[in-house]
């Protein structure tokens, strides 16, 4: 992140994306395993459990789905719940869209499939880094996305077939909020961005009780509004 190495060729961008995604795997792998363990606890078939990790490929929605399946909620309700939980991805979609305009439909569809929280966090940081211009940044996004995808498939499989491998008393999941802090803090360069983040953080705590991660959407919306308003002044 702090490096000034110029990465301009597709393959160097791809491998830089892979490398920058690696620290996030520390936090994602335990979640993948827990998902697999929960799917087994809910007596889901092996094939369905693993297929969900590649077809749905969205941690929070998968967690909620297996939990609701275990408690006998009607499938249509589970479907709608998953859709609402995943609404934040539309924000990510809008955020990366301006950078993907020049790509072919196949590229755009492929990157949309890979647009998880953790791939987005790393890719948007690279896209908005003006000190490192480049026209091959979609290769970076692809590298980060494929790395996360592979980790999610393997860690779900471990959870499904082996059970949890990482000891629960080592809180590796905590590396994810730490990484998000490391990605956000250096980008709070102006008053509007800093205020947007602080307000979003406040609202996220106050609105945490809202179901289906709607508090997250509300926090982002209010934070973005404050940022926009301060920027105009």
């Amino acid at each position: 992140m702090g490096e000034l190495k110029s990465a301009s060729s597709p393959s160097s961008e791809f491998w830089l994306g892979v490398r920058d995604e690696l620290p996030l795997l520390l936090g994602v792998a335990p979640f993948g395993m827990i998902y697999g363990v929960l799917a087994m606890a809910a007596s889901l078939p092996l094939g369905i459990s693993q297929a969900m990790s590649s077809i749905v490929f969205a941690g929070s929605a998968q967690f909620i789905t297996v939990q609701l399946l275990g408690s006998g909620v009607p499938l249509l309700i589970i479907f709608l719940t998953g859709v609402v939980v995943n609404l934040r991805h539309a924000l990510y979609s809008a955020s990366v869209a301006p950078y993907l305009q020049h790509l072919s439909p196949a590229w755009r569809a492929g990157l949309a499939y890979l647009l998880t929280d953790e791939a987005y966090a790393v890719a948007i940081n690279h896209y908005s880094d003006e000190t490192r211009p480049g026209k091959h940044k979609h290769w970076y996004f692809l590298g980060a996305g494929i790395t996360l995808w592979t980790c999610w498939q393997l860690s779900s499989a471990l959870g499904i077939f082996v059970g949890q491998v990482v000891p629960a008393d080592l809180p590796l999941e905590f590396t994810l909020p730490l990484i998000f802090i490391a990605l956000v803090v250096p980008n709070l360069r102006d008053r509007a961005a800093a205020a947007a983040a602080i307000v979003a953080g406040l609202v996220s705590v106050l609105a945490f009780g809202l179901p289906y991660k709607l508090g997250l959407l509300l926090a982002a919306a209010v934070g973005m509004g404050v940022g926009l308003w301060l920027e105009k002044k």
Binding site: R88, L91, Y92, A94, S95, D117, Y120, A121, I124, N125, S128, L176, P177, F180, I181, L183, V184, N187, L188, A192, A193, A196, A197, I198, V199, A200, G201, L202, V203, S204, V205, G215, L216, A219, A220, G223, M224, G227, L228
Partner: peptide
């Protein structure tokens, strides 16, 4: 403002 708000709202 999407990255700084959403990632903060996940982390906090």
């Amino acid at each position: 403002f999407v990255p700084v708000t959403v990632l903060t709202a996940i982390a906090i």
